[in-house]
Design a binder for these strands. Structure first.
Length: 473
RNA sequence: GUCCCGUUCAUCUAGAGGCCUAGGAUAUCGCCCUUUCACGGCGAGUACAGGGGUUCGACUCCCCUACGGGACGCCA
């Protein structure tokens, strides 16, 4: 038996991290067992499904690198097949027409809730035949009475649910469209899905689906219900927690490998290992090791992983990903130092690409204003002399390289008999506008001779203005 | 309300009855490295939800309580 898993989102929004993790687990399971991973779009809810959502989901899957072997299949293309099955169930007495109005059902539900019992359909139309068979109606699956259904879940273990808890669910709406519980069953059966790995909000649906499968004489797949992901604050993940869309993470400067690594460790672990390459995930992942309890999304840990991958990745690769973020800041990286060199200088200093873009702006354009604290601390009158000397030394350089810059700065420090910090730090603030930057040599080198001299002049003017301010009138 | 599921540091987790004075990671704090910021190294504090059993022994097994989540739709 070859393993076949699937990811079956409904296109009613973007791909969020919860769905992405479910997809990842499903994908890993298929890859690990040399099976197939199928993508199916569950768009039977005509009201809420949109093509934009389909695109968003596809885009998210692509960005994450979760390539599917078959699909995407659309359920809206398969209505004939569903109707065929519904007819079969009707013919076999496993389903029946129900003419109850929504009003009657609402009332029934309210009464039952008020009586503190679980709301269930009362089987009214099973007992009473309608006068007009063709009057508007839905079709209900006739759930077995008595006994219980056992879901043998790879993650939860054996879960038993009494058939008396289940009612006769609607499998076809008044408008003739099939509903979720019917379509999943038919699709999983037709697509030969062997392992259904999905969110545990579906655990309650499994018994119903198994019953339908039994009525159809089909074998049930193996289930694995993965726990939900909660937000940073432990509540249910939602839009209010900020970036829940996978694509939002891309826009926020995260690498797909970081998100993948983060997600695979959420609810699953392999001893003390934190870093997993894709290949390691595939070889080490075991659905049996997935935790039962829900886990909270922790952005700080994701950032740590992101920094790790930024640090470890090929600078040229990071540069290509960084480029659009520079663009967002109005910077054209081709006008200035080689972005790859900038990445090498910043690689250990940014949690996200957005952050890297921000701290790299000064390589391409003069800063707007000095960082107030940095300027106050470093651009003081005592810095004027060394700064002036440095300016002269740098201006005199005929060869602009990290080595020559390094020597020039050290020579000035030696001549003045002061520590490097006394000259380098004011110089840094002068050139980058703030207190933090990569090493001073490479920073100056990449900024370029002209820009360095221009900015040093600006700092000297600032120091002078400040001196006048404090001394006089 | 009814049914289902869950509960180890702030967070992600290790733990399959003695290996646990409960381990790792993130975050936090401290020290070291250092021309800044980072990186890196070292170190600190913080957890078995509560109560009953079972057992020579329970984080691990059973029961109850509390808390959290899910489901109960002509949504998926």
């Amino acid at each position: 038996m070859t393993v076949r898993t699937r990811f079956a989102p409904s296109p009613t929004g973007y791909l969020h991290v919860g769905g992405a993790r479910t997809a990842l687990f499903s994908w890993l399971y298929a890859r690990k067992h040399g099976g197939k991973f199928v993508l199916r779009i569950e768009d039977t809810d005509l009201e809420r499904s949109t093509p934009e959502s389909v695109n968003a989901i596809l885009e998210g899957m692509t960005w994450m690198g979760l390539e599917y072997d078959e699909g995407p299949f659309y359920q809206t293309d398969r209505f004939n097949r569903y109707n065929e099955i519904i007819q079969q169930l009707l013919d076999d007495g496993h389903a029946y027409r129900c003419y109850c109005s929504k009003e009657r059902l609402d009332e029934l539900r309210e009464t039952q809730m008020a009586a503190k019992t679980k709301p269930r359909y009362d089987g009214h139309c099973l007992k009473n035949k309608a006068d007009d068979v063709d009057a508007p109606h839905v079709i209900r699956f006739r759930n077995p009475v008595g006994g219980s259904v056992i879901v043998n879940d790879l993650i939860r273990g054996k879960v038993a649910i009494s058939n008396d808890e289940l009612d006769d669910l609607i499998i076809r709406r008044t408008d003739g469209s099939p509903t979720y519980n019917l379509t999943v069953v038919v699709d999983d059966m037709d697509m030969n899905i062997t392992h259904v790995i999905r969110g545990d909000d579906h655990l309650n649906n499994a018994p119903r689906q198994i019953n339908i499968l039994n009525a159809l004489g089909a074998e049930a797949p193996i289930y694995a219900h993965v726990p939900m992901i909660l937000g940073d604050d432990g509540s249910r993940l939602s839009k209010r927690h900020g970036a829940v869309s996978v694509m939002q993470y891309r826009d926020d400067g995260f690498l797909p490998e970081a998100l993948l690594n983060y997600l695979v460790r959420l609810g699953w672990s392999h001893g003390d290992q934190e870093i997993f390459s894709i290949d390691e995930m595939i070889s080490l992942f075991d659905i049996n090791d997935v935790n039962k309890a829900p886990s909270s999304f922790n952005t700080e840990k994701l950032e740590w992983l992101n920094q790790h991958y930024i640090k470890e990745s090929d600078p040229a690769h990071i540069a290509s990903l960084l480029s659009p973020h520079m663009g967002d800041l109005g910077i054209d990286p081709s006008q200035g130092p080689d972005l790859v060199e900038v990445v090498k200088a910043q690689q250990e200093r940014a949690n996200t690409l957005v952050e890297m873009a921000d701290i790299s702006q000064f390589f391409y354009k003069d800063y707007d204003d000095f960082d107030e604290k940095a300027a106050k601390k470093n651009l003081r009158p005592v810095a004027a002399e060394p700064m002036q000397k440095i300016r002269e030394a740098l201006a005199a350089l005929t060869e602009w390289s990290e080595d020559t810059i390094h020597t020039a700065i050290h020579d000035v420090a030696d001549a003045l008999e002061v520590k490097m910090g006394k000259v380098a730090q004011p110089l840094r603030v002068a050139v980058v506008g703030r207190a933090a930057s990569p090493g001073i040599d490479v920073t100056l080198f990449l900024v370029g001779q002209d820009a360095c001299l221009r900015r040093i002049d600006r700092a000297l003017a600032y120091i002078e203005a400040r001196a006048n301010e404090t001394t006089g009138n």
